[in-house]
């Protein structure tokens, strides 16, 4: 028995929407454990979101429509991105909407409008956050592209489904190029999702804030949308990493058994991925802002080395 592609699409959409808070909760649990603190339950993010949805909105006097529109747009774009990445099956009708590059650019929209929203009120914090975010993005983007380039070299495509299909069926081989690209990807993903050592999602200190500074003025459902979108973004980046570097197990069609297997593997991979990330986060300290060029430069270097290794060694 197999599911219709549109059903898979819908399933996946719901899955990502629904699973993202749980995943964020899982990360939080791991992190607390790693730091020897008592962890909240895995459902805590759901409760947070629900609570925020219930709250009233306090808006600054001079907030324009950009400010109010941005949360919806951010959420919308993230949700669309969620429909594109093959989580369970390759057979997605919407996956052709965007290849990896377009996907990255979709997050560009999110960033663009978040940064604008940060500047809308006219406080120094918002401007600071926007300015830093755009700088980090501008340095992360080339590195991201090189990583994508390397993977697309291996699979001869920049389309995600195609990558998954090719890589998932390829015979096992040690590929230094992919190893480098993965390392680069992890570094960039940390930067893009605002994790340590690039940004600290759990702080509101002037010196370290980047992402939080932009959405400092938000409240109520706007904030809820931002939070939810952020969780989804984190999950999507993990999914992207899984699709590009460890696609084994993602179903080739809509067969239920395969889908179930894929789901199980996905949960496992996400759990392991979260563990890796938490280890990195716990092991590192937040960097000074102006050390970031070197950090992202190293990511770029790794990605480039991956590409070079592909040409030289493979």
């Amino acid at each position: 028995m197999s599911l219709h592609p549109f059903a898979i699409e819908l399933l996946q959409f719901v899955l990502l929407l629904g699973l993202a808070p749980a995943f964020a909760g899982w990360v939080k649990i791991l992190k607390c454990r790693a730091q020897g603190r008592t962890a909240p339950g895995i459902l805590q993010p759901y409760r947070d979101i629900r609570r925020l949805f219930g709250k009233d909105i306090v808006l600054a006097e001079n907030a324009s429509w950009i400010f109010r529109f941005t949360p919806y747009l951010v959420f919308g774009v993230t949700a669309v991105a969620a429909g594109i990445i093959p989580l369970l099956s390759v057979d997605l009708p919407l996956s052709a909407t965007a290849d990896v590059i377009a996907l990255v650019m979709l997050f560009g929209i999110v960033r663009f409008f978040t940064a604008l929203a940060g500047m809308d009120i006219g406080t120094a914090f918002g401007g600071m956050g926007s300015s830093r975010e755009m700088m980090i993005a501008s340095l992360a983007e080339p590195a991201m592209l090189m990583a994508v380039f390397t993977v697309s070299l291996a699979s001869n495509s920049s389309s995600l489904t195609q990558m998954v299909a090719v890589m998932g069926q390829a015979e096992f081989a040690i590929r230094p190029s992919l190893a480098f690209a993965l390392a680069a990807f992890i570094m960039i993903a940390l930067a893009e999702t605002g994790r340590i050592p690039v940004d600290n999602p759990a702080t509101h200190l002037e010196l370290t804030m980047v992402h939080e500074a932009m959405i400092l003025e938000y409240s109520g459902r706007h904030l809820a949308l931002f939070e939810w979108a952020g969780m989804m973004k984190l999950t999507i980046f993990f999914a992207l990493g899984i699709a590009a570097f460890s696609p084994w197990g993602i179903a080739a069609d809509g067969d239920i058994g395969a889908l179930l297997l894929a789901f199980g593997l996905l949960v496992f991979k996400l759990a392991v991925g979260a563990l890796i990330m938490v280890l990195i986060e716990t092991g590192l300290a937040k960097m000074r802002l102006f050390r970031l060029p070197e950090y992202l430069g190293s990511a770029f270097l790794l990605a480039t080395l991956g590409m070079i290794a592909f040409f030289i060694l493979e």
């Binding site: 081989a173 040690i174 190893a179 480098f180 190293s298 080395l305 290794a309 060694l313 493979e314």
Partner: peptide
């Protein structure tokens, strides 16, 4: 051969790490 390639890549990486 693959293993050697990987080691070569790692040597290259360490060469860059020395620079960094």
């Amino acid at each position: 051969v693959q293993l050697n390639s990987l080691l070569a890549a790692l040597i290259l990486l360490t060469a860059f790490a020395l620079l960094a």
